[in-house]
């Protein structure tokens, strides 16, 4: 293979600053989307377990819609279709005046999509809690909201930390799809470096290494969280 390796290109000021900027956007999109996903995912997940049938139905519909449509299609819908479907003034505002439209759209699309997946994990976590525990809380006079707040959620969130870790890693990887709507995140910047320098191997190796490092840090953070919140002698083995 006739290929001129040149790792130095990654450290030239212009390209290095592209990588750093891409890294910054990837982290920003992923973490912002994660915040949305945790909040909405928890609400929808709880909503799927409450006694009220209408609330359960709405939450189940949310999950089915956002989980079953490909994330890429959702990005396109939010970016290209939604501004056209809104009242004219709002559409104009989204297209002209919304600051960082690619970023905001990517965060919304990724956040709402990830929320549907988190909702399913929250629901599963709540359903794993032995029913006798909520009966005990009810028998002591706790309201439904208090039973969720003090008994069901604290237990179920501990149970779902491991699957949430995978979801947390996925949100960083999925953030790369934002390049399709023009956000210059890590993958987009690597592609751009490859096009400018013809050093595609180096550029995508850099992206790969950065993604792996992000994943490692995220995994370590979640493991610390898991250890810190572990119930002595309950689920899993003692540290």
């Amino acid at each position: 293979m006739n290929y001129n390796w040149n790792w130095g290109v990654l450290f030239e000021e212009q390209y290095l600053s592209w990588l750093i900027s891409g890294f910054g956007w990837t982290i920003s999109v992923a973490l912002s989307a994660w915040c949305i996903a945790i909040v909405i995912g928890s609400l929808v997940g709880v909503g799927k377990t409450v006694p009220n049938k209408i609330v359960r139905g709405i939450c189940a519909t949310y999950v089915e819609i956002f989980r079953n449509v490909p994330l890429l299609v959702q990005m396109f819908i939010w970016y290209f279709a939604v501004p056209e479907m809104l009242p004219e003034d709002w559409g104009h505002w989204m297209k002209r005046d919304l600051p960082n439209p690619e970023f905001v759209t990517a965060v919304v699309a990724l956040g709402l999509y990830t929320a549907s997946r988190i909702a399913e994990q929250v629901r599963a976590g709540i359903e794993t809690v032995p029913p006798g525990l909520s009966a005990a809380a009810t028998a002591h006079g706790l309201s439904t909201a208090q039973t969720y707040r003090y008994v069901l959620l604290p237990i179920s969130f501990r149970i779902i930390v491991p699957p949430l870790t995978s979801e947390f890693l996925t949100v960083f990887k999925n953030s790369s799809l934002a390049l399709t709507i023009g956000l210059l995140e890590l993958t987009a910047q690597s592609q751009q470096i490859a096009e400018y320098t013809f050093q595609g191997f180096e550029a995508f190796t850099a992206a790969t290494v950065i993604y792996v490092c992000i994943a490692l840090v995220a995994t370590i953070l979640m493991q610390v969280l898991e250890k810190y919140t572990r119930i002595p002698g309950y689920v899993g083995k003692e540290a």
Binding site: G132, L133, A136, A137, A139, H140, G141, Y150, I155, R158
Partner: peptide, 17 residues
């Protein structure tokens, strides 16, 4: 009403966390 009636269960149902 429930807060005035104590109840003890077969499987204890202490809050594990």
């Amino acid at each position: 009403l429930r807060s005035r009636i104590g109840m003890v269960f077969q499987h204890f149902e202490l809050y594990p966390h």
